[in-house]
Design a protein around this nucleic acid. Structure first.
Lengths: 220, 220
DNA sequence: GTAGAATATGAGTAATTATTCGCATTATCG
DNA sequence: CGATAATGCGAATAATTACTCATATTCTAC
């Protein structure tokens, strides 16, 4: 034979359906380890075992565990972006509060689908430095929100989008960490936080002690 | 000799000043690794090296790297709690907005002192399960905020404190991750987010397109 | 069918990381 | 001092984890 290729890309692209199945099995095995045992137990041998696959097979498709994590993150971000795009399309033409609620719902659905996995992947994401593809996905998500804000004449849409995403993530993460999983409850709390940041009307949490005449008269 | 003790607690308490110095050197070495290289490079040998200490010495004071991390986290939470208590004392008797700003400032100081370290430790904290002492520190911090809210007649103080802490952390973390380090800018953004959540007055971000008479007349 | 390509295997090896232990050094106290 | 305890050392060893490769199995196309 002429010359065996010098082992170029260690990561093959699966061609047959059986290898496709192997590929997703590895990813799913890794995901389940993240969910149930934590990142420190994610070793190549262990992933292969949980995937019902041999280590050698794993290495045919992934050069190492970082590659597995990167692919899981990429898929998560891709799914999230798709949901966001759908929500933004629905909200087209509707008013600000409606559009925001649609985006909040999309974000919440994502966090509640596989809560432990989403949390673990976000942690990994901030620890690893990511490839450009993942960065691009996140950038497009932010741009999408910026557009929603800009169309509604919100000032400083970039910074506002940044803060809204950040505070949403903060509340979602903390809630999920404490096993709060009630969709409607979380939706309300996120909606309050976001509307409040924007200066939209929000029912005050200050229980009026005794209504004085000056308080009733004054607009704020 | 009668009987060598069966190696009870592998973690000695340093008695001489020199060993005190060793103890803190190990912690500082670990902290610097977290800051500059990331959690995956935190190995006992490496920590010892960066601390200028031999591995054996490290193991005299810490049974393993988790113990080092736990102690770093404990110290971080302890410092933060102290700052919060101080801020709450200052704010005693002042109005809600003032009290909140004092707490925000304390939180921000903490995050900005050693930003990369704070981030890394928070990640580790959510990955490891912590001992009761650290849980207690966090619980006392939340209680402190609950009290601030309760004294000002805020409804559902527990849940509100939870959400305020969560959204603050979300914004702080995201900002620091993006190298936004301007104290006053962050203070303003956090203040807006928190006041907004509570339904306090916040300058709206909606650029009024044309002021209609009904908008000017209506209180909200 | 059968040839050849693709895929799968897992024991075996390399590399990394954790942990110990015998001994050297330094401090404390009378 | 000198005795004893405290501290420090780091090569050596154990344990874990990463990764390979010779071989076996399964698929595809003719």
């Amino acid at each position: 034979m002429m010359m065996t290729k010098p082992r170029l890309n260690p990561r093959k692209t699966p061609r047959q359906s059986r290898s496709q199945a192997t590929y997703v099995a590895v990813l799913e095995g890794a995901a389940r380890i993240l969910e149930t045992e934590g990142g420190h137990r994610l070793t190549t041998n262990h992933v292969a075992e949980r995937a019902g696959v041999s280590v050698g097979t794993l290495y045919q498709y992934f050069p190492g565990k970082e590659a597995i994590l990167a692919e899981l993150i990429r898929q998560m971000r891709q799914d999230m972006l798709t949901d966001f795009e759908e929500a933004a399309r629905e909200a087209k033409g509707k008013d600000l509060a409606f559009a925001l609620d649609a985006l909040i719902a999309a974000s919440l659905r994502h966090h509640l689908r596989r809560p432990a996995l989403a949390q673990a992947l976000e942690r990994v994401e901030s620890e690893l430095q990511l490839n450009d593809e993942i960065h691009a996905l996140k950038a497009r998500m932010r741009e999408l929100i910026v557009e929603v804000l800009r169309e509604r004449r919100i000032m400083e849409p970039e910074r506002t989008a940044f803060d809204l995403m950040a505070l949403s993530r903060g509340i979602s993460d903390a809630a999920i960490q404490s096993d709060q999983r009630d969709f409607d409850d979380l939706q309300q709390r996120l909606s309050r936080a976001i509307r409040g940041y924007l200066g939209l009307a929000v029912t005050p949490l200050v229980a009026a002690p005794v209504k004085t005449s000056t308080e009733i008269a004054g607009c704020r």
